[in-house]
Simulated assay, not measured.
Amino acid sequence: MTTAQLARAVGYSTQQVRDLERLGVLPRADRAPNGYRRYLAHHAVALHAYRSMAAAIGPVPARTLMPELVGGTVEAAAERIDELHGALAQERMQVRDALRGLEVAVGESSDLFSEEDAMTISELAHALGVRASALRHWEREGLVHPARASLSTARSFGARAVTEARIVAALRSGGYGIPSIARVLEQVREQPVTADAQRILTERLAGLTRRSVALLAAAGHLHELLEMLGAEAAGAGEDG
């Protein structure tokens, strides 16, 4: 195939094909006597592998990783794919924990809470499994509002502050940044519902599933590519 033919076959532009070959995502193409690149079937497979990998981990990481995978062994590629699946599984577990934590946090917010039950920063940090410095950072960002008589007195986390901290901890464990969490807290403060927070986390789970499926596709294409390259190398050795 010519560059244009390969580009049409996989839905890329000719410039994208040239760039990906230059970056090592594609194996180097041979040149015809007229100087034009000649692409074979394994180049199309490599592009499909890259497209799926980009959907799974992002275009920039995929462009960095693909040359390593293309130039390596099946065993090394399998190990790297396992690591990526493991990272996605860990992230999925964190999001699910965040959903459960959010439900518990808002459910507990309606419980009777005596001011005598207020928690110190160290007690709350221990209960949430975070550092006290994290709670101080959340306070500076306006996410949690502990009671303090003055700057020199200790913080006291009452019912509202504990609920805020639980929600922040739940969403942070799901990978969300401060601006997104602030928007969720605004809704929770206005009305004790978690629809928006649950929607955000549920969409995150769906996105992780799409990435996992794309990684499965990338693994299949990559295995096919490495098998083709191995067969071609073996054939060249016999010819030699």
Score class of each variant (00 low, 15 high):
residue 149 A to C: 07
residue 208 L to G: 03
residue 94 Q to H: 08
residue 80 R to G: 03
residue 44 A to I: 07
residue 49 A to L: 01
residue 130 V to D: 08
residue 19 D to R: 10
residue 103 E to H: 14
residue 204 R to P: 05
residue 45 V to N: 00
residue 223 H to G: 14
residue 124 L to Q: 11
residue 172 R to E: 03
residue 178 I to E: 06
residue 225 L to M: 06
residue 236 A to S: 13
residue 203 E to I: 06
residue 132 A to I: 04
residue 118 A to P: 00
residue 96 R to E: 15
residue 178 I to Y: 05
residue 174 G to L: 03
residue 151 L to A: 15
residue 173 S to M: 10
residue 7 A to K: 02
residue 115 E to S: 13
residue 183 R to S: 08
residue 166 R to T: 01
residue 92 R to V: 12
residue 82 D to R: 15
residue 117 D to V: 11
residue 41 A to R: 14
residue 164 E to A: 13
residue 207 G to T: 02
residue 9 A to Q: 12
residue 228 M to V: 05
residue 44 A to E: 14
residue 38 R to Y: 02
residue 201 L to H: 05
residue 237 G to R: 15
residue 227 E to H: 15
residue 59 P to G: 02
residue 201 L to T: 08
residue 126 H to E: 12
residue 6 L to S: 00
residue 158 G to C: 04
residue 162 V to Y: 01
residue 128 L to I: 03
residue 103 E to T: 13
residue 139 E to D: 06
residue 95 V to E: 01
residue 216 L to D: 15
residue 111 D to N: 12
residue 193 V to Y: 12
residue 232 E to T: 01
residue 72 G to W: 00
residue 130 V to H: 09
residue 37 R to V: 02
residue 51 R to P: 00
residue 151 L to H: 15
residue 228 M to P: 03
residue 93 M to K: 12
residue 111 D to E: 14
residue 129 G to T: 08
residue 180 S to I: 14
residue 75 E to M: 11
residue 14 T to Y: 07
residue 185 L to E: 00
residue 27 P to Q: 02
residue 161 A to C: 03
residue 91 E to Q: 12
residue 19 D to H: 04
residue 94 Q to K: 04
residue 24 G to A: 06
residue 222 L to V: 03
residue 7 A to G: 01
residue 236 A to T: 15
residue 75 E to I: 15
residue 11 G to Q: 05
residue 128 L to H: 01
residue 143 L to A: 06
residue 118 A to F: 02
residue 116 E to V: 13
residue 201 L to S: 09
residue 2 T to V: 08
residue 8 R to E: 07
residue 69 L to G: 01
residue 56 A to R: 04
residue 38 R to Q: 08
residue 170 A to M: 00
residue 63 R to C: 07
residue 91 E to G: 09
residue 52 S to L: 09
residue 199 R to K: 09
residue 151 L to R: 15
residue 181 I to W: 00
residue 47 L to G: 02
residue 65 L to F: 12
residue 238 E to D: 13
residue 85 H to C: 06
residue 215 L to E: 02
residue 62 A to H: 02
residue 160 R to Q: 14
residue 33 P to L: 05
residue 56 A to P: 02
residue 28 R to N: 10
residue 81 I to E: 03
residue 16 Q to H: 10
residue 107 G to H: 04
residue 119 M to V: 09
residue 200 I to K: 06
residue 62 A to K: 03
residue 185 L to D: 00
residue 139 E to N: 07
residue 28 R to I: 09
residue 208 L to P: 01
residue 214 A to R: 05
residue 185 L to H: 02
residue 166 R to V: 01
residue 216 L to R: 13
residue 185 L to V: 00
residue 82 D to S: 15
residue 103 E to C: 07
residue 188 V to Y: 06
residue 97 D to C: 14
residue 144 V to M: 04
residue 186 E to M: 05
residue 169 A to H: 05
residue 60 V to F: 13
residue 145 H to E: 11
residue 146 P to L: 07
residue 76 A to E: 10
residue 125 A to R: 04
